[in-house]
């Protein structure tokens, strides 16, 4: 009744020789980006090419801005639905930081890294209100990745799609780039894509696919690296050095009338009314010096001072 494995039903002759072990494509992104759609296209294509395919995803949090990934494995025989670490032949990242998260899954040397350069910054990466706070977003630049991963493609898929006038087809642009990393006939790709996009948008999606493919085929790694080095250093110079400092909240106890406004409106909730009902800084390390308490204190009992103000 059960089978150990399902054999390819229709063997594509020219590829049988090449595919000795399953090929692993890891597609990653953020909820809502279309990771599942991209992986479905690939899985269907592989199936149509006569391979056994397993595609595994965790998408319970897809709508809630969480990380989304999809493992696509295809070959004559595929057992595990998930790709072992370090064995992804292709890592397709729809979002930059997600690409960085899954980087350890990429096969050393021979793995291909394709990433959209767009940044989806989660609110948590912007949680620091302190003066001069840096974003919690990944710090790896395109340059860093390119210098570590030989087969790396960092593309502005959204930009390319935008140029074509179809912002929504950014995923298809990425599929075009992905197509250069796998040995399938471009026409086969297109026919599968046509199955998955609305009828009206087939034509634009085909163009988007071609655009992505052309971009990847014309990608000149060396000149790109040089470019990046130039712009990168320029950026460095332009970055304003903001001193990270900690503000001090001064409370004039005699002026406080216990109205509780500051306590309730403090974005970091670091103030409390003490047992005498006078405002008190309970968690100074959380204070970011945003001045909400100062602005809203009807009694002028709170002053927020930066260290340089104090030294004056």
């Amino acid at each position: 009744m059960t089978t150990a494995a399902i054999k390819p039903l229709k063997k594509a002759q020219k590829q049988t020789q090449k595919v000795q072990r399953p090929r692993n494509v890891l597609i990653v992104g953020v909820g809502g980006q279309g990771v599942i759609m991209v992986s479905k296209v690939l899985a269907t294509l592989c199936q149509k090419q006569g391979f056994e395919v397993k595609q595994s995803e965790v998408h319970g949090m897809a709508k809630r801005g969480g990380a989304v990934f999809s493992h696509v494995r295809f070959g004559e025989t595929v057992y595990s639905p998930t790709i072992p670490e370090g064995e992804a032949d292709v890592l397709l990242a729809l979002e930059w930081a997600e690409g960085m998260r899954w980087m350890p899954y990429l096969r050393q040397q021979s793995g291909t890294f394709i990433a959209d350069t767009q940044h989806i910054v989660p609110p948590f990466a912007c949680r620091n209100r302190t003066r001069g706070a840096q974003s919690g977003y990944v710090s790896e630049t395109i340059e860093t990745v390119m210098s570590h991963v030989d087969n790396s493609f960092a593309m502005d898929a959204m930009g390319i799609a935008e140029q074509l006038g179809v912002v929504k087809a950014a995923n298809t642009v990425l599929l075009g780039a992905l197509s250069t990393a796998l040995d399938f006939d471009p026409e086969a790709w297109k026919s599968v894509i046509s199955m998955f996009v609305p009828e009206k948008t087939i034509e634009t999606n085909i163009r988007a696919f071609d655009a992505g493919r052309d971009w990847a085929l014309g990608f000149d790694r060396e000149s790109e690296l040089r470019n990046l080095t130039d712009t990168h250093s320029l950026q460095q110079e332009g970055l304003a050095e903001v001193k990270v400092d900690r503000s001090i909240v001064e409370i004039t106890e005699e002026w406080c009338k216990s109205c509780d406004i500051c306590v309730k409106f403090c974005p970091e909730r670091c103030l409390v009314l003490n047992d005498k009902l006078i405002v008190e800084m309970a968690e100074p390390e959380r204070c970011t010096g945003c001045r909400m308490c100062e602005w809203l204190c009807p009694d002028f009992a709170i002053a927020v001072r930066t260290p340089d103000q104090i030294s004056q």
Binding site: W255, I261, D299
Partner: peptide, 14 residues
């Protein structure tokens, strides 16, 4: 003259 005469939470201070 402080603290001023206004009631706790009076918006006039703000």
């Amino acid at each position: 003259l402080f603290p001023h005469f206004m009631c706790p939470g009076c918006g006039h201070g703000i």
